[in-house]
């Protein structure tokens, strides 16, 4: 029996994927918080106990994400670029472009037919174009992030959010609400703003189908639809899309075991 563990210690959320004999046995996640090492350990323990295993049984553990160097017990450390590529390609073999929008960064990765990274671009210096942007706006609009897709569907049109800065965009939506613009239209405008920003990053590395969308924001239906409009491409959201980095890390761990 082999137990391969992938840990993605992200800036907002820590994700763990456990493969037992090469098959996904369990996934778990937790808010990273101020102590990434402790959160990773707790997450690993939780995931293992859920699938009936213990830390001692781990055959190999690969860590990725911003806190990757803090994960104890890692056999190997890899960047989230490489791990997302591995995970997405395993899940969608036709994947040639990956758009990953996490809590505090976004990245676009271009792959070849083997799933090897050809080029990548990251935005981790500005909250615009990240999950944090949506969180701030959702709080201001008093709407859950999971309701964005529904709200998008209700919108009769959309407004243009001109500000690329999260702080200024928040002021802008306050003005729009004061001007009587309905919430669905504002939400559609926000989804379009984030999609526009990420699409311009994607164009810099080149967009080739299939385009796979990963990271926590991939679960946001409004952003997915806005991205499809912005890129004029079908966007594939694979199963476990928010766990893709950890899944890729687990696959690398499985390779090392074998």
């Amino acid at each position: 029996m082999t137990v391969a563990v992938g840990v993605d210690s992200g800036s907002t959320t820590t994700k763990v994927v456990v493969l037992v004999n090469g098959k996904v046995a369990c996934t778990t996640s937790a808010v990273t918080g101020p102590d990434p090492a402790k959160t990773a350990s707790l997450c690993i323990d939780k995931a293992l106990s859920e699938c009936g295993h213990t830390f001692r049984e781990i055959s190999c553990l690969v860590a990725t994400g911003y806190g990757r160097e803090r994960v104890s017990g890692a056999t190997r450390i890899l960047t989230e670029i490489t791990c997302h590529a591995r995970g997405a390609h395993a899940m969608v073999p036709a994947a040639r472009t990956i758009i990953d929008i996490g809590g505090q960064d976004s990245k676009v990765i271009r792959l070849d037919e083997r799933g090897f990274v050809q080029d990548f671009i990251m935005n981790d210096k500005c909250a615009a174009g990240t999950g944090r942007f949506l969180e701030v706006m959702a709080a201001r609009l008093q709407v859950g992030l999971d309701e964005f897709g529904e709200e998008w569907g209700r919108a009769r049109g959309s407004v243009k959010i001109s500000s690329t800065c999260t702080v200024f965009a928040e002021s802008e939506i306050i003005s729009l609400i004061s001007a009587g613009v309905k919430r669905p239209e504002v939400i559609k405008g926000l989804c379009n703003a984030i999609a526009g920003r990420v699409a311009s990053m994607a164009r810099r590395v080149g967009i080739e189908p299939a385009v796979v969308f990963t990271g926590g924001v991939s679960l946001n239906e409004g952003v997915r639809r806005a991205l499809e409009d912005a890129l004029s491409q079908k966007i594939v959201v694979p199963p476990m899309s928010q766990f893709m980095g950890a899944y890729g890390a687990a696959l690398f761990a499985q390779d090392l075991v074998e």
């Binding site: 890899l78 670029i81 990274v117 990548f120 981790d124």
Partner: peptide, 16 residues
């Protein structure tokens, strides 16, 4: 850290 992540990812790209 952001620079190192990019450099490490580039290194992994070259190695693969």
């Amino acid at each position: 850290a952001q620079t190192k992540t990019r450099l490490m990812a580039f290194l992994e790209l070259l190695e693969q």
